[in-house]
Design a protein around this nucleic acid. Sequence first.
DNA 1: ATGCCTTGCTTAGCAAGA
Length: 260
Amino acid sequence: MKFATWNVNSLNIRLQQVLDWLEANPVDVLALQELKLAQDKFPVDALNEAGWQASWLGQKTYNGVALISKQIPTNVVQNNPHFTDEQSRLIAGTFRSESDKKVRVIGGYFPNGQAPDSDKFVYKMAWLDGLRKWLSLELAVHERLVVMGDYNITFDAADVWDPATLEGTIHCTDQERTQLQALIDLGLHDGLRLCAQPDKSFSWWDYRDFGFKRNRGMRIDHILVTKAIKDATTAAFIDKTPRANERPSDHAPVVLEAAL
DNA sequence: ATGCCTTGCTTAGCAAGA
C-alpha cells in the first residue's frame, strides 16, 4: 500500500498539479493539507472524474484537509473528537489493504505556532496535547495506523538547513520536539527514516530568497506509522519534483510504501 | 532585516504561512 502527504497551499491553485501528480503516482491514500477552501467549494467532481474518491474537511481561507483515494473509506472522522477546534485540521478514515487488512489513516495539518511566545504557540501545544490523547485511543484499536501530514515540527538538526541559526525558532523548539517525541513514544515510527535518505532531505522550502534552489528548507511533513507498518515498509522518499513546478506549493509530497 | 514570496480577501493592503 502506498501513502503520501502533501501540503498544497490552496487546492484551488494546485488542483491540476494534484491530478497530474496522482496520475504519475497512483498512491492508495493521499493526504492533503491547506486546502484553503470552504467545505462546499471542494473540487469533488474533478477528482471523481479522474477516478478518485475524497473525504475532506474544509474551511474558508485557512487550513482544510482531505484524504484522496481509490477506495471509499469507512469510519471517517473530521477533526479530533477529544479536542474542540474551530479550525479544520484533521481527517481520518479506515482503508483496506490488498490482503484485506484494515489500515487506519489520519491526515493532519498541525498548527504553525508562529513564534514560541505567541498565543498561536499556546494553541499549538494544546492541540498537540489533544492529538496525543486521541492517538492513544486510536492506537488501542488499530494495529495498522498511519498519521501523516504537515506537522510543522522538525525532529532534530538534520531536518533543518541551518540548525545553528534556527535553533529555538518556530518548528525547532524543544517544546515542539518534546511533543513530537511524545507521539513517537505512543508507539509510532518516523516513516521516512526507515529508509536511507540523502543528507539535507527537506519537505518544505521558503518561497522567498530562492529557498528551493539553494536547498534552504526543513523537513516538517512526516509519515508516522505503527510497528506493523514499519515492519512492512519497502520504500520512503520525498518527491521534490512538484516543488520545481511552475507556481508550486512550498511543500513537496512525502511517500511511504508498505507491503500490507 | 520590521525585508524577500505566495495565498485569500477584497479591490490596496493586510493576515498568515514557516
